[in-house]
């Protein structure tokens, strides 16, 4: 997400709206955004509702055994169709902003 923030101007230019989603409550997220200087949209899925619907539940992986989301990114076109997915197999290996911006060029 740091990479997204750093390249936010390029995402805006490409017409891509980044939206970060986790089980964190809105107040926790507000703190994070302030501390890390994130200025794009963050949404709270405290009930693990969307995370379930996208089959991203990492059962018991959170603090006190809470269900959380595994890391994943989806690029949707304006009709809401998935155009690119990254379901990393390794927590430490992540998609790079340049890759996403490259795919974004093909969106109409």
């Amino acid at each position: 997400m740091r990479g997204i923030q750093k390249n936010l101007a390029l995402f805006n230019e490409a017409g891509i709206r980044p939206v970060a989603i986790s089980v964190d409550r809105p107040d926790v997220t507000r703190d994070l955004m302030q501390k890390a200087g994130y200025s794009f949209t963050f949404l709270s899925d405290a009930n693990v509702d969307a995370i379930k619907r996208y089959d991203l539940v990492h059962a018991g992986a959170g603090e006190n055994g809470h269900d959380i989301s595994r890391p994943a990114e989806f690029l949707l076109d304006s009709s809401g169709t998935v155009r690119w997915v990254n379901l990393t197999e390794n927590y430490w290996v992540r998609a790079r902003p340049e890759q996403i911006l490259e795919v974004a060029k093909s969106l109409r």
Binding site: N12, R17, V23, D24, E73, F74, L75, L76, D77, A104
Partner: peptide
């Protein structure tokens, strides 16, 4: 809603796409 994210304007026009970033969170 996702529909709002796809249609509401950003810099005066609707976005060409939405990037959903699911992350583990900090709890």
């Amino acid at each position: 809603t996702l529909a709002e994210l796809l249609s509401s304007s950003q810099d005066g026009k609707p976005p060409r796409g939405v990037l959903l970033i699911f992350y583990r969170g900090y709890w």
